[in-house]
Amino acid sequence: MSPVKYFLTIFVLGLVGILLQGTIFRLVLPASLVPHLLLVLTLYLAFYETSVLGVFLSFFLGLLLDLSTGLLLGPWAASFVVIYCVLSLVSDRIFVESGLAAVVIAFFSTVGLHVVHFLLATNLRPAIGELVSGALLQAFVTGVCAPFLFLLFRRIFHDRRGGMRAAYGGS
């Protein structure tokens, strides 16, 4: 897949993610039960697109989220970059093809994302109690959805991590 086509695919997936998260799921579910689709896409990038391009794409996805809110530009972009950076540094030590690993990574990444965003958005501190329970619920739901979304993304991008299984001695 050419870089332009790759970027456009991420862009379209980002828009679809926002549309699903902000409209279709939210019309039938409370916010805390909606999986963080854009974060899962960023996690996928951290494991399968470990490069400077990946950093840019994670920043871009965060910026899309900021734009969709329309209040402040930057907090989500910064949070996504932090999560991407941390995970890409350990990506060669985690076998994310295992469903359970994907669940655990997605759970802790969602919690981490909310923590970073919370630290950046100081005006949210009064509502910490409600936000923590909401974030934990969302982390759980995102974790459950992550393995399936990873499968979907691998199909879309034709496994850019090429040779991953071979590297781990798989068939």
């Binding site: 490069s51 950093v55 840019f56 530009l73 930057g74 907090p75 910064a78 950076c85 540094l89 950046l120």
Partner: peptide, 16 residues
């Protein structure tokens, strides 16, 4: 990656 992330992180803070 760390260098680029640091740049993008601070750029995001400036944007905020």
């Amino acid at each position: 990656i760390v260098g680029a992330s640091t740049l993008f992180f601070f750029f995001s803070l400036l944007l905020t």
